[in-house]
């Protein structure tokens, strides 16, 4: 049976995002938290795999105790089991520290065939963990797949690579980082929600893992948030007149002036 893990993150719902002015960090108390939107595509892929292959699906997250609700939501979608990596020692981990803790978790769990992630989180948008984790675990990472099949220990897929598509054959275990809108995440049945709250969530804390010293405490993260600033992109409106051709010509010139130039093939 395939052991499929989906790595998700709980994030604040975008419209309720607020930043603490003194620390520059996101305020995570008393706000609505959701599953990182990109991760829904990863969950959907795992559920599809479960339907087509003999697979046991597990959702995993690292975060504070309230991240449990994100795991429950994933269980409600139909994921079999859930793992929460949580410990005050892991608070304020940056992407590298997070990666290393998750790596230790997988060393502890031992069996895994497929690790699936979304592309990036909506609250920090680094997209670094999938790449770092594949390095840390020393397993291949494949991004942007659109066709796939599994035969035995072989994973066959097609992936987008710029304007090409690549056919890849690789042996499990592997990591997949799925792109946005890769599939259509399913709606959650009410019965799924009911059952999700009857399941037990496996907790992995600092003491469960055989963590090297450098993994305890926020001060060990190499990244330090010095300051958070609001960035307002400058935009301006301009109305263009004339025939379609004249308007196209005008836009072309504006792009050229701004250094955005490309080979025009069509009209």
């Amino acid at each position: 049976m395939l052991e499929v893990y989906v790595l998700i993150k709980q994030v604040p719902k975008s419209h309720s995002l607020r930043i603490d002015k003194s620390s520059g960090a996101l305020i995570r108390e008393n706000i609505e938290n959701i599953i990182n939107p990109d991760d829904l595509y990863a969950l959907e892929l795992a559920l599809t795999l479960k339907e087509s292959y003999d697979a046991h699906t597990v959702v995993m997250t690292m975060g504070p105790p309230q991240a449990e609700s994100a795991l429950r939501e994933a269980l409600a979608m139909g994921i079999d089991d859930a793992v929460l990596i949580s410990d005050p020692q892991f608070a304020y981990s940056d992407t590298l520290q997070t990666t290393l803790v998750i790596k230790e978790a997988f060393e502890y769990l031992k069996r895994y065939d497929l690790l699936i992630t979304g592309s990036e989180t909506s609250d920090s948008s680094t997209g670094q963990v999938p790449y770092q984790l594949s390095e840390a675990l020393d397993i291949p990472l494949i991004t942007d797949i659109f066709e796939y099949k599994i035969e035995g220990r072989n994973f066959y897929c097609q992936r987008n690579f710029g304007h090409e598509s690549q056919n890849i054959q690789v042996e499990l275990p592997i990591m997949l980082r799925v792109r946005r809108h890769f599939n259509k995440p399913r709606h959650v049945p009410l019965l799924g929600i009911k059952k999700a709250f009857e399941k037990k969530i496996k907790i992995i804390d600092f003491n469960t893992l055989n963590c090297p010293d450098y993994l305890d405490g926020c001060n060990k993260s190499p990244t330090i948030v010095v300051k958070t600033e609001k960035f307002i992109p400058k935009r301006k409106n301009q109305f263009i007149e004339g025939t379609i051709k004249e308007q196209a010509e005008f836009i072309k010139n504006v792009m050229k002036e701004n250094g955005i130039e490309r080979q025009w093939t069509g009209i």
């Binding site: 959701i34 429950r72 939501e73 709606h187 959650v188 929600i193 709250f197």
Partner: peptide, 18 residues
């Protein structure tokens, strides 16, 4: 409860989508 909150959010998403 957490369950009721999740129900509200998911039924809201469903309703807005479909």
């Amino acid at each position: 409860t957490e369950k009721q909150k999740l129900i509200r959010r998911r039924i809201r998403t469903f309703s807005e989508d479909f």
